[in-house]
Amino acid sequence: MERKEIVALLRDEQNQQALFDRADTVRREECGDTAQLRGVVHFSNYCCREDLYCGLLKSNTKTKRFRMSEDQIVETALGIAESGLRTVVLQSGEDYHYTRESLCSIIRRILEQADVAITLSLGERPLEDMRAFREAGASRYLMKHETMNPKLYSVMRPGLRLKDRLETIRALRELGYQVGVGNIVGLPGQTIEDLAMDIEFFEEFQPDMINIGPFIPHADTPLRDNPAGDPELMLRVFALARIVTRNTHLAAANTVATLLPEDGQYRAFVQGGANVVMPNCNPFRKSKADKIEYEFQITTQKRYVTIDEARNVLRRAGRTLADGKGDSLKMQGGSFD
């Protein structure tokens, strides 16, 4: 698509149902009526970055920080496998407390005991770290680019450059990872043209997975007084991402459920062409109070979807749980059988 066409579709509120219908058709043709559940182990909320939109930013002194031990991470991952999910996502803030050696050990221990795929979402690490993680058995890496506007990127992520992020994303592909990217819809200062550049990037890069989420203002960040992202615009971004990437795995982030608690992820599936949900699987589940406390430790004002809730989303959307580990359809030549 040309940028002017993308911009026009992003702005067209009156005829968005036609866009949604097209995205759903592409999803059905390219990905089938199955969907992926990927269990997330969020093992640390420490972070060395100062991302203005993120409640984990280093200067936030109100967040109760935690780190899981190596044994806790492995045990949680094995619990995910026992529940029937075939992908484990190891996710944290950008936390260098975990060394290359410790993370490689965690990856190996999980794979020795469970037949799963491991996705990493750890932020930017040295190239040698990411090579070692790949050699240890991790096969996927999720690194959202956040926005393709370089000025906005540097404002939102002080001291960092979009150019460096994109170089890292491309290096991940060269290392043999299935690579996930993604953007935030509704960042303060973001324009429709910025979102069109995100769609162009999706079309050019053809990632193995995309994770799209709305901006959600966090009470303990500098952006606390800004409005949340527009849910309808977000869904149009979903739909266009599906159309231009065809068979890329498209995830409805937990922030989608935060923005639209009743039906956000359902709408991302039936209107936006999504086919992946990543439920939170951390072990702090002894009581409702424990769950609330754990979620507060990660970030306030964010809803974390459980495995049962994710299964309900699939049922409501008329999808069945896919067999296998959910590898990239692009690497499989487009077959979803």
Rank of each mutant, 00 (worst) to 15 (best):
L259Y: 00
L195N: 08
V313I: 15
G159Q: 07
G229Y: 02
I80H: 12
T87A: 04
R86P: 03
L172M: 08
L223G: 02
R86L: 04
M278H: 08
R100D: 11
L314M: 07
E128I: 03
I216Q: 01
C31W: 10
Y98R: 10
D308E: 14
A257F: 01
A274W: 11
G137P: 02
R140G: 05
Y98H: 10
C31L: 15
H145I: 05
G186R: 07
C281V: 05
L172A: 00
I184H: 00
C47P: 01
A117C: 07
G84Q: 03
F284Y: 14
T255Q: 14
E29A: 14
N275K: 06
F336M: 05
A228V: 03
Q36I: 12
C54K: 09
G159V: 11
D71K: 15
I107N: 02
I243M: 01
A132L: 06
F205V: 07
H97M: 06
D12R: 07
E200D: 02
Q297K: 15
L103Q: 10
F66Y: 15
L9C: 04
L103F: 07
A8H: 11
P279E: 06
C54T: 07
R316F: 10
T299I: 13
R109Q: 14
A35D: 00
A252Y: 05
A289W: 07
L57F: 14
T299L: 04
T25N: 11
M68E: 13
R27S: 15
M278K: 08
P158I: 10
Q16C: 13
E204Q: 12
R285V: 12
V276K: 03
Y294L: 09
I243V: 02
N247K: 14
P283I: 04
L260Q: 15
D263F: 06
D12Y: 03
E262H: 10
Y304M: 11
V270E: 00
P158Y: 08
F43P: 04
L152C: 02
D12E: 02
E174K: 15
K325P: 03
L10P: 06
V179A: 00
R242S: 02
I298H: 04
Q16K: 15
K58V: 08
R157V: 10
A257M: 01
L152R: 04
R108Y: 05
R316G: 00
I110G: 03
L19M: 09
P279H: 05
A23T: 07
G182M: 10
R173V: 00
V41S: 10
A138S: 00
H218Q: 15
P214Y: 05
G84H: 02
E29I: 09
G39P: 07
Y177L: 02
V181I: 15
D263S: 12
H249D: 09
A253S: 15
A289I: 12
A317M: 09
L162D: 08
A219E: 11
S59A: 11
N282Q: 10
A171R: 13
R161M: 12
F201M: 09
V116Q: 02
E112I: 01
E295M: 12
E29W: 12
E167H: 07
D24S: 14
A253E: 14
I210Q: 03
F201I: 03
T299Q: 12
E128L: 09
E293K: 13
N275A: 08
D164Q: 12
K64C: 08
Q265R: 13
I192T: 13
M156K: 06
I307L: 15
C47R: 01
Q301S: 14
C48L: 12
G93P: 10
